[in-house]
Design a protein around this nucleic acid. Structure first.
Lengths: 336, 336
DNA sequence: TCGGGGTACTTAATCGATTCAGATGAATTA
DNA sequence: TAATTCATCTGAATCGATTAAGTACCCCGA
């Protein structure tokens, strides 16, 4: 590896001079600085990240903490899209990405310790459970932190607008004349709570009664679970006219179940999804759903975090809401 | 942060002794070693990764390089599942994961330089194009490397058996009596070439003619592209009786198109996918496809890599083939 | 001619951990 | 008793980069 010493030798100056020149210190003459920069480029020099991290306490590395109940966090399309855009934006701004988890090999450490161990300059957190003490410890620590879809008041956050998204869907369906709305929800998380609360509140505002049996638990991104919930709904004495699915993938499980019962969408049953993944828009009928802008959320999160890292003094926590968008497909019949 | 110096002070020994005790050096007495280990645990000590990396040239960090044409690598289910399992297995073995890419911030560097910059102990490579010079440079370097779905003879690799997988599908369809097989393929990569070659070879072996117009290009994981390709196939004078899709998601695009033409699966058209993602098995009819074991591939890759890192002397390149499995759904009619 | 004040550099300490080459002291041997 | 051996621990250099403090040199004014 080319080190600062090699450049110093090649240029006949001290290592300190090289370091300063490369970092744009004011007390190096133009000519020397240019010469050093040219030599560095010629030799293919890149600073050693470990040495820098050790000396400066800055690693130019940001941690990503994705924790969900099942552990397969990344493989959910919503998360992987966020991850991809956090990664892209961070790289653009000069930072690398490392995953933060608990228990690396034989060492047992929590998230905070792991982040310190790797000298992460900051961490982006997505979690199904923000009440977990390990998550709170990290969020409350001196390490800059941005949370996704949840907000602590001591750190910045990027939130997809679940309240407004769900309200938009309910109002859309209501406008089409539906009054018997069933709601299949994912595991209880803060996001789920928001969507459910928004569903209930909007229904109340529109004078739509919501019988308890119309609210069914399932699991996010699990077509099987939503298929089951769908079957239960179809067994009710008074069937709903429209089913809200926890997400687009879950809808596919429901779709299968509806077909089995010989019900066609939207003639015999209307449905809406959530997420707006690309797949939902190539299905026929096109799914009516609410698109969450995962790309925007990821890059916004990276920007907020890095801004905080680089301006610790002037920084104040900010909550950014990522606007979604109702995708009006054709899975909701007009029975007005 | 608790450092080795803190422990040394607390125990009244030198820093050297602490380091040796924690690393199990033989010239430290049992009692001293125990006392030091206990103190370390009490104080919540964890070694500083940067300091270690600097001194030892070992970072306990492995790089993951996912590069595809579109750039959205991670968000493809197949890749994200591999990533998830590389991550899980690496963590179990004491390693963290960092993404390797080109051009971090203002610094322009290639993959190899990036891996050096972060002192990665090794790199797992998944790429759409293994002929790219930056990929070859990394694979040919002194950095331990494991490739996925491609093999250089100088490094280990984990390959999903595309040859056998495709052969199994063709034979299955042939056994059901189909003789007019259309093949929609993804972007031309080494994987695509293997599948296509295997398709052609197996067809030849079974005396199935393959007209050029039955081979259609599309894009992996893009329902729109495969929908288009499907439309073209349906416009042919002599339609195929079975369509091979590049992957399960692509099939969904085809499904939509087939429905539009009033064709039902498998009565009017048989189809097979590839990948065996969970979704494919909850659809009705259940998709006939070939399951690639992404989880096994990921953990196998991590194990191979770490074995090489930890035993550089006795190491020899190994090629591991991950067996897949034909999932016999009900999207292929029996016209025998 | 001497010193004040810049400019442009160098020296050396430092970050936290590892490791080689001693050093210490007790026990053993001639 | 003096020399040797062994187990156990310490001192100091080192990895590559940064940075506070110090030095050399030049220019200028009185």
């Amino acid at each position: 590896m080319v080190t600062i010493t090699d450049i110093a030798k090649a240029c006949g100056v001290s290592r300190a001079t090289v370091s300063k020149a490369l970092n744009g210190a004011p007390d190096i003459s133009r000519e020397t600085a240019d010469r050093i920069r040219k030599t560095a480029a010629d030799l293919g020099y890149h600073p050693n990240a470990a040495a820098r991290a050790l000396k400066m306490g800055r690693s130019y590395n940001i941690g990503v903490l994705f924790s969900d109940a099942t552990g397969g966090g990344i493989s959910h399309e919503y998360f992987s899209r966020i991850l991809e855009s956090v990664k892209a934006e961070s790289e653009r701004l000069g930072y690398d990405i490392t995953f933060i988890s608990q228990n690396i090999g034989r060492m047992s450490m929590d998230y905070y310790e792991h982040a310190k161990y790797r000298s992460c300059d900051g961490v982006v957190i997505a979690s199904a459970d923000f009440t977990a003490p390990e998550i709170r410890r990290l969020a409350a620590s001196e390490i800059p932190t941005v949370t996704l879809d949840y907000s602590f008041d001591s750190c910045s956050s990027v939130i997809s607008d679940n309240i407004r998204g769900m309200e938009a869907l309910v109002r859309f369906v209501h406008a089409k004349g539906h009054r018997r709305l069933a709601f299949i929800h994912g595991e209880i998380t803060s996001v789920t709570q928001k969507r459910l609360a928004s569903f209930r509140r909007t229904c109340a505002a529109l004078d739509i009664p919501v019988p308890g049996e119309y609210i069914r638990p399932a699991v996010y991104h699990d077509p099987r679970a939503s298929g089951l919930a769908t079957r239960e709904l179809l067994a009710l004495a008074e069937r709903p006219t429209c089913i809200f699915y926890p997400d687009d993938l879950s809808f596919l499980g429901g779709m299968t179940e509806l077909e089995k019962h010989g019900l066609s969408i939207p003639k015999d049953m209307s449905v809406v999804g959530y997420d707006g993944i690309p797949l939902s828009q190539v299905l026929r009928p096109r799914l009516t759903t609410y698109r969450q802008d995962a790309e925007q959320m990821g890059s916004e999160a990276a920007r907020l975090l890095i801004e905080q890292i680089e301006n610790p003094d002037t920084w104040l926590p900010r909550q950014i809401t990522a606007e979604g968008q109702l995708l009006e497909g054709s899975t909701v019949s007009d029975i007005g």
